[in-house]
Every structure is written in structure tokens, then in C-alpha cells.
Design a protein around this nucleic acid. Sequence first.
DNA 1: CTGAAAGCGCTTACAG
DNA 2: CTGAAAGCGCTTACAG
Lengths: 357, 357
Amino acid sequence: MTHARNLDRPTIGTVARQARCSPATVSRVINASGPVSADARARVERAVAELRFRPDVHGQSLRSRRYRAIGVVVPSYTNPVFANSLAGIESTARDAARMVFTAATDYAPERELAIVEGLLAQRPEGLLLTVADADRCEALDRLDRARVPYVLVHNHPADSRRHAVAVDNFGASRDITAALIAAGHCRFAYVSGSFRTTDRGRRRFDGCVAALAQAGLPPPALAELDYMGSPQDHRRDLTALLGGGETPTALVCSNDHLALSVAAAVRTLGFSVPDDISIAGFDGIAIARLMTPSLATVETPTQAMGAAAMQRLLRLIDGERPAATVELFPYQLRSGGTCSAAPSDQTGGERRRATTT
Amino acid sequence: MTHARNLDRPTIGTVARQARCSPATVSRVINASGPVSADARARVERAVAELRFRPDVHGQSLRSRRYRAIGVVVPSYTNPVFANSLAGIESTARDAARMVFTAATDYAPERELAIVEGLLAQRPEGLLLTVADADRCEALDRLDRARVPYVLVHNHPADSRRHAVAVDNFGASRDITAALIAAGHCRFAYVSGSFRTTDRGRRRFDGCVAALAQAGLPPPALAELDYMGSPQDHRRDLTALLGGGETPTALVCSNDHLALSVAAAVRTLGFSVPDDISIAGFDGIAIARLMTPSLATVETPTQAMGAAAMQRLLRLIDGERPAATVELFPYQLRSGGTCSAAPSDQTGGERRRATTT
DNA sequence: CTGAAAGCGCTTACAG
DNA sequence: CTGAAAGCGCTTACAG
């Protein structure tokens, strides 16, 4: 009668017995960590295969003080931006024989520390994170103290003693705004979640403002929406912005996810996109290209950024000590059907009456 | 001079010394696993806080033979369906104090076994998986032999000795096809990835065929697209289907992700959606509702399904032995602008000429 | 209520 | 090239 308990999973001792050698020799074969005779190696390999032996990582990690696992913190799984970087991260990790722990903050900065603590208890080799604000983040301070290597993804710390992989959020936002100015727009609104609380949100906003200032235009009207809200919520929030006489003709949105929802909301308010109102996003999520009209946006290589962050982390783990820098990936403006020339009757005053559908 | 090595992370021994007690007492406090005097408890709690002590999970797991971690296998992170179930899984896991390992198969069944082996080496309490075909899957056979509990998500095994959380793919696909038939369509095509290789793909296809048969209509034309391909690829693949004289008026797509790409491709071929061709999806991803026209589809509660699968797994881990069943979640037809009544000139013959844009 | 001791599955100097 | 022994950080009977 066999023990039900864990089905007697083989240990290194089981393998050693079957291969007629010591556990040390089995370990040397498995890890290629020392000289083993061809004969012994063959016996061990045979036993490993027959028993389907895989060393227990807890035993390995405890003794060797090395656990080939990476902790990953994302704000959300369902935003395609983070899904993409996660895909890049995990596939690179797999190639490097690393397991990946994932945890989502649900955009709540106050959860970041607890999540990082939970991850640290696993004793990973390092972490990859997208946090709200890399310049004021207890979780990162904790990692610094614990001397656990980490790389930020999408964050853009001002204090660049932190490793990060990002795009030039300021420049990209400035450029896409400038493109709208060039298309004749002069009444802008900036639509975002609570952008003050994230470093990339602030940079994107600042880029928009900078482009307008450079063109001698007033700063954008502001619409701060609940990022997690429904299109119905967004429609409600946009009513004030679009109901007045000075309706903006161009909405610069802080990200694509939001821009898609805003486009839908604006349409149900009775405006045409882009004939009445042009809409620009940020990120370049694949699905936004499939819409008709397609979303004008800033294309960012999110998956490659995830992969690059993982590669950088692997270098840190291997003991390299490159200067901490924010590695900026190239972005690209993607023109799209949601942006067109400004309407010709842009003299202000009463425009099309907003109607709810 | 302190050791650089791992910053001398405190161990249970460090805490014991500082609290003037034995490691056993510290362990009892941390795990609430035995009687401790109020006084000793206070000293330990103080020391734990001061030292920021978190027990090393490898030590805990090795000794207690219990590791509060779950392995999750998804086909892809970037398909919103799996991103959603992952979100449901991870948030439920967090509430139950479980860490989550994630790995993607990239839709390649041949990677499933290796991924599961890697996960098993971590000694997780259980696994949650979405595999290609739950009826023929080495990875699942392996899990059965290892007696590691697992629950399938989205899979729909015929052999229901396996725990699964899914929707009635057959019924839902039959229903949405029937709705198109009721709208007057009689020339159908079924558009999918390589549906023969996944259990849910087969059921969805069968449901479509069944609805047509019941209405006395011929089976659908078939377009098997590379699911991971670009819209350009899809346009190329659809040219043959739509170029002939007997152009279908209704495309039933095996999932929303594909349906969005197909809708874009069909439009660039010169057809109007839905005036010339109606398109139906499957899954109910949020973003498809934002499109104009919105995607008609089958809404499935993907996040709730992930959460339910995790809950079921937790029960299995706790030693409950409920009969293995496929738990079917309710689905809902979502009408949308991509589906309309069949065009009136449905007498066959040459329709609108396909043009490439 | 408390602590000493054993041991989980491994790896790694060390001695041969 | 090989194995005996120690020990990684914990938990858990066991004895008191």
C-alpha cells in the first residue's frame, strides 16, 4: 500500500538510490555543477527520466540561496498595455528559465507596498514593476533597502537612480498635440484619469500643455474621468465639457483605453468623430487600429519594452551594475480616422446641440 | 561592517533572539499555531515589526509541505478573454492569501506539458489552466498522475471527470446563429482559427452547424484564419470566401478578437458591415462594445469565471471532493450594430465587387 | 506555555 | 571522480 501523501514524489535521494550513487552526484548531473563520470551520468539521467524527477525548488532555493523567479507588478491585466508588457516579460523570462509571479495593484498605489512585501517573501531574484508614481513610492523604497534588483516598466522617474524602460511621454504627447494644432485645432481638452497621481500621466499632460503654449494657445480644458468607469459614466462626465458654447474640437486622451470609451461617449452625445471632434489616444493598442475610424494615437512598443525590462533585470541579477537610467523606447505617431482637420466654423459660439441617445 | 550578502535578511532566529524566546515560539505566533503567553506574543510581535520580518516561504514550504501558491496557464495574456479570467483568478487568489505563477502557452499545445512541469517543480497547491483540448492533453494526464488538484477555465471537456468552468459553447453558438437566421440570413460562413484543435472551438462550430441544419440550411462555408495573423493576413484569407458569386451575408466568428479583425478586413475589401455582411463574435470583450457599430456577440462572464475556478480550486485544496463537473456559466446574446437583417437582394449571383483598398 | 531537536529536499565545501 | 556531512529557514511532534 502506497502513501497517498503527495504520491511519494521522488526526491534526489530516490534518484540516487536508483542510480546507485550519492545525492551529491545526482545534484552534479542535474546542475552540471561538477565532474561526473560518463557512467554515473548515464545512470543518473536514466533514473531521472524513469522517475520523472524534477528537483523541488524550495530545497534548491533554500540551500543555494538562489531562486530563479521574478515578481511582476502591473496595475491591471485587462489594459492591453500591461497585458502586452506582461507577455514580453514572461516570454523573455521563460527563455531565461525563470518563473514569473504576477500581481495587480488595480491602480491603487496604497496596495503597492503590501503586494511587494508578499512578493519579497517568495525571495525572487528581482522584480519588474509598473507603479503609479516612481518618484514617491514606498514599495520602491522598500526594494532599495532590501537591495533586491528591480526595473520599472512604463514609469518615468525623475530621480533616475532607478532603472526604467519607458517612452518619452512628454515628447510624444507634445508631438501628437502639435499635429492636431497643425491640423487647425485651437480649442483643446485633455481627458484623463486622475493624471496627477501617476508620473507618466503628469508627463503626458505637460507635453500637451507645452505644445499649446508653444503655439500661443491657451491650456486645454480638463476632464478627469474615472478611468475604471463605464462609457455611460464617461458620457455623463463629458456632458459639461461639451455642452457649453466653447466646445473643444480636439480631445487629447491620456491613453487608448480611455480614448475608445470617450469616442463612444462623444458619439452618443450627438457629435461626429472626427467631423465635429477629433480624438487622439496614447499607447497604440492593437485593437484601436481595427476600429472604423481607426484611433489616432502614439504607438509604443509595449511588448518589446516588457522584454527589454526583463533583459535589463537579468543583467542586474547577473551582477552587472550598469548605471541606472531610464531607457527610452522610440514612439511613433499613428495617424487615424479619429483625427481630422478642425471644423471650418471654428469661430466659437453655439455649435451642434448635444443630444443624448 | 555588515555583510553585503542579501542584506542579512532577518530569519526566525533573529526574531527569536530579539524577542528572547525560541524559534518555535516565534513560529507559533506567526502562524497562530499553538499556545503562547500574552507576554511572549507581545515581544515577538514587536520584534517582527521592528525587523520587518517575513518568513521565507521556501523554509516554510519545505518543512510544512504546504506552499500557498497557484500555477496558472493561459493561452495568451493579450486576448482580453484570458486577461479577464486572469484578473478574476488573481484577485480571488489574493483574497485567499495565495500567490500566483503565470505562464502562457502562446496557443501551442505542444508547450503545455513543459509549462506544467515547470509549474509543478514549484510545488504549488494546485493549478488553473486553459488548454487547447481538455480531452487529449498530456499536461492534464500528468496532473492526474501527480494528484495535483486543478480546474480548467474556458475548456469544456467531454470527459467530465475533470473540473471545469465554462459556458455552453455549443448552445451559445447555436443561439447566435439562430438569431441571424431569424434576421433572414441564409448564406453563412464560419470564420475561426484552427478550431479543430480546441475543444471550445469544436463546440462553437458544431453549434453553428446545428442551428443551420435545424433551419434546413446548408452548412456554413469555412474560413480558417491564422488566429495570430494581422488584419492584412485576414483580408487576404477572406478574399476567396467573399470574392465568389455566392458571397455569404453572415459571418459567424469563433471569437471577438477575430471578429474585430475580420470586420476591419471585410471593410477594406469594399463591403459594408452590416449592410452587405453581418458579423457576429463570441466572448463579449468590453472593447467590442465601444466600436461603432458595436459588435454583436455572446457575452460571457470571463472575470467571474476565473474567480469561480479559483474558488473551486480552493475547495479542492481544502480537501473537499466535490464530483468533478463542468460548471456552465450563463451567457447572453448581445445584439450589436454589426448584425442586421439580411440584404434584400439575396438571390445569389454577382454582388458588390470586392475591391482592395 | 515553552524549548530542544529532528528533518523537509536540496547544494556545497571538504576530504579522499 | 565520489560521497559523507553540514546546513539553508522553517515547523512540528515531543518532552517538560
